[in-house]
Design a protein around this nucleic acid. Sequence first.
DNA 1: GAATCATGAGAAAGCGTTTTCTCAGAGCGT
DNA 2: ACGCTCTGAGAAAACGCTTTCTCATGATTC
Lengths: 342, 342
Amino acid sequence: MARRNTNRRIGIADVAEKAGVSHATVSRVMNGNAAVDPGIAARVRAAASELKYQPNPVGRSLALGKTDTIGIVVPDLANPTFQAILRGLSIAASQDGYRVLIADSSEVTSEEAILAGEARRRCDGVVLCAPRMGDAELEELAPTLHPLVLINRTTVATNTPSLSVDYGQGIQELAQHLVGLGHRRLAFLSGPEHSASNRQRLVGLEKFRKEHPEIELQMLHGGSNFDSGHESTEAIIASGATGILAFNDLVAMGLLSGLHEHGLRVPEDISVTGFDDIPFAKYTTPPLTTAAVPINELGSLAWRRMREQIQQAGEPTTQAQDEFSPRMEIRKSTAAPALKPA
Amino acid sequence: MARRNTNRRIGIADVAEKAGVSHATVSRVMNGNAAVDPGIAARVRAAASELKYQPNPVGRSLALGKTDTIGIVVPDLANPTFQAILRGLSIAASQDGYRVLIADSSEVTSEEAILAGEARRRCDGVVLCAPRMGDAELEELAPTLHPLVLINRTTVATNTPSLSVDYGQGIQELAQHLVGLGHRRLAFLSGPEHSASNRQRLVGLEKFRKEHPEIELQMLHGGSNFDSGHESTEAIIASGATGILAFNDLVAMGLLSGLHEHGLRVPEDISVTGFDDIPFAKYTTPPLTTAAVPINELGSLAWRRMREQIQQAGEPTTQAQDEFSPRMEIRKSTAAPALKPA
DNA sequence: GAATCATGAGAAAGCGTTTTCTCAGAGCGT
DNA sequence: ACGCTCTGAGAAAACGCTTTCTCATGATTC
């Protein structure tokens, strides 16, 4: 006897009474699960629409053991990449009648597991987006979250599908591009320390270094947003590099703006690349050379992988490990260096 | 007898059995609602943590009649403004233990009411963000959605709190700013037809026209994103106006890029203003003069108004109608016009 | 020492659905 | 006309929790 009965929403019981049938019959009519006499069905439907009856999803969820909702955990909702994934996921999921519940960990690593667990209990599955937690913790957490889809991380133990972008490959191609233009002094403006995608970039660049020992490649610390790019301007100028690989487009844009303020021209004086190809990248001045990540696909594919797991619950999951290769997007922020490097 | 019992998650019954107490006692211990013998409580807690018991939120929701979730309906999740509102809302709500469920109407007006209704049934309240539906429909829908918070729209009938931005005022100030710089030929590149905020801008500009009959002010049709701004470039040039009021920052940025491609310099040849002050606005080249909308505040205030309604359920709601005044953000995309207007 | 009271735990109802189980009645064949 | 199957509707259990109600136990008071 929880809530008082007064003033409650109209429920299946009201419809049943009005139509002169049992609860069960109303449920049958609403869901079309079993054969019901057409006459009775019509009566029920009339009663339902007259009372504007709408089934209570919570009761439904309890009985069915599913919520038609999936959760997504992201490190920072301010990041356009995660926003785009969220959007792609939401649109794809809604096409199948599912809704998305969001949880923003605000880059607080210790919160991720808690948020994910909570989301999982409320939802039929969880998408874990670029988690910052350590490998061991992820390995332990993953099985408890199933159905789970991982973005930008992988796990070995369980067969959880993962979607990732080959950041190592992309950053190498960008570096190649700069070298091809004639640059000999490069600098990488790195991202957040706990970011797995940042580590991938570092690994890729290490490989690049081995293959091009003649090229100077400096590593500079930075962040993942505008401001950190902007703040790094002086360090970049001091580095003497002519080709700058920014962690992502946001950082590149901040840097672009900082360089402009210092009177340096891009690409004449210095070349800058981004990463991600966020929608804004092609509208910067100059338009940004970057590695395009098929971000919309990521969101919708995440949903497809989730749906597969939800549908074939129990069956041997097909452990899909999708990896996307970034596509070079050569624009105007890169060019051959001036003859006499600064 | 819905699902088969096999393989089910561990529930309150398991804890009760393990601790040798009744379901009720476990519930009492978990929620701290009533006095429980410390010894028994400890036993229950031990059993719970040993079994890693986590209450099922669906069962909880059904019993409590609340879901600790609120819904938000937005016209387009790709729009940075709505992304920012979503983010502010989500962060504020999570501080109080609430989660956010999202619904994207994809600008399909007819879907809004359905999505909102569905969201409301699943959640404890709904935030309706810049709905495109007509006034009559909104008026009819609002009472059925309570607790409801409206953003960028108001409603008279019920006492639902609303948050809005004085777009009319902001656009007038921007126009004033241009006139103050010496511009005499202005053009407004308008937004989506169904957008209430676009109508507000038009009303504001009508007022401006009355007060400044000597100023030429053209109205051009446009959209709300980069591309529409970009596409309008030629129409803008053809208009002969020297001061352009873009619908929002996105449109302004697209326009900036288009003008650049046509060899026109901003602000020397033509001045451009945006609206919203999205994070990117200060990093464009040149940095964009715009009217700043306190977008983060909007999201968190939306939550505060929602929380007020949820808490004082039943009590006379305080029908708050908050209106924000945009703040002029004068940057480098506006300047005095060339002596001889094009 | 008996009556009263406070404390705290268990039984059970209730939240709003779905689904199984059961059974009445109709239709059919012999 | 009898028994069989079949259709379809109601009764009730189940989902997992909270909370009221009830009652036993031990403490308090006269």
